[in-house]
Each structure stands twice: as structure tokens, then as C-alpha cells.
Computed example of a mutant assay.
Amino acid sequence: MSYESYGGDKGPFRMEDLVKVQDGSVVSRTVIDRPEGTVTAFAFDGGQALSEHSAPYDALVQMIQGAMEIKVGGVPHSVKAGEWLMMPADVPHSVEAMEPSIMVLTMVRG
């Protein structure tokens, strides 16, 4: 996705304008996709989850709105709007929205 395709050429934007919470769903939108890494916005309805999985890259979660429980290596973390959480490469993690929530995931490949 290019900078212009999501309206970045118009100046500052809000992640919550790029991805909306939908009833009973998890929705994502890729903001940046480069060989070095990705930035993806996710919207979760309350109670929606991603089951335990791992990724071969370090990742950083930024909560934009709402609250989630994110387990990293089996350890639960309550992450609220305005907070950040690091997830190391190859460590299993899972995500569950405690309420309607939006987060940004930055994955570093390089």
C-alpha cells in the first residue's frame, strides 16, 4: 500500500479512521508493507481474539483505543489505550479484546 493510497498525502491522520470496529469481527488494514517490516491497524470487537501463534520477527503493539489481554510466552498483560507492548520474535502470543479495541502492530523484519 502506498502513502497516497491511504490519504497520507493530505497530512496527519488517525488510525481509528483507517480501520473500524465491526460487530463480531476482527478487521485489519495494512498501512506500510516493506521488506524491512510492516505496520498494520487492527480493530477487534469486544470478546474477539487471535489464538496463540508466533512470528519470526520482533513486534510492537500500540493500543489506540479500548483494552486487550495479550499473552506473551503464557504471561498475560492488560494493555490499554495509550500503552505499548513488545513481543519478541518466536515467542508464542495471543490477543483477546476485553472491549471494542483498535491496535497498531509494527513488525520489524530487518
Score class of each variant (00 low, 15 high):
Val39Leu: 14
Ser51His: 11
Leu105Ser: 00
Val39Arg: 08
Gln62Met: 12
Ala89Asn: 01
Gln48Val: 09
Val79Pro: 11
Ser54Gln: 15
Val104Ser: 09
Ser28Tyr: 06
Ala59Phe: 01
Ser2Lys: 06
Val61Pro: 03
Gln65Cys: 08
Asp17Arg: 00
Phe44Arg: 08
Gly47Ile: 08
Val72Phe: 06
Pro35Asn: 14
Asp23Met: 07
Leu60Pro: 00
Arg29Val: 02
Leu60Trp: 13
Lys80Phe: 05
Gly66Gln: 06
Val79Asn: 06
Gly7Glu: 00
Ala97Pro: 05
Ala97Glu: 02
Ala89Arg: 08
Trp84Phe: 14
Tyr3Ser: 09
Trp84Ala: 12
Lys20Leu: 10
Ala49His: 12
Val61Ile: 15
Ala97Asn: 04
Ser101Cys: 10
Gly110His: 09
Ser94Leu: 02
Ala89Gly: 04
Ser54Tyr: 12
Gly47Leu: 11
Val39Asp: 03
Met87Cys: 08
Ser78Cys: 03
His77Gly: 07
Val79Gln: 10
Asp33Arg: 12
Asp23Tyr: 08
Val31His: 07
Gly7Tyr: 00
Met86Ile: 05
Lys10Phe: 07
Ala67Phe: 04
Ala49Gly: 04
His93Ile: 02
Ala43Met: 05
Lys80Ile: 05
Ala81Glu: 07
Ile70Val: 15
Arg109Met: 15
Lys20Arg: 15
Pro100Cys: 03
Ser51Thr: 10
Gly24Ile: 07
Pro92Ser: 04
Gly82Ala: 07
Ser25Cys: 13
Thr40Pro: 04
Leu85Pro: 03
Ala67Ile: 04
Met103Ser: 14
Ser5Val: 09
Tyr6Ala: 09
Tyr57Met: 01
Trp84Asp: 05
Val39Asn: 08
Gly8Trp: 01
Pro88Leu: 00
Ile64His: 11
Val79Thr: 04
Ser51Arg: 12
Ile32Val: 15
His77Lys: 06
Asp17Trp: 00
Glu99Pro: 01
Lys10Ala: 14
Met68Phe: 15
Gln65Leu: 11
Leu60Ser: 03
Asp9Thr: 13
Ser94Asp: 07
Ile64Arg: 10
Ile32Asn: 14
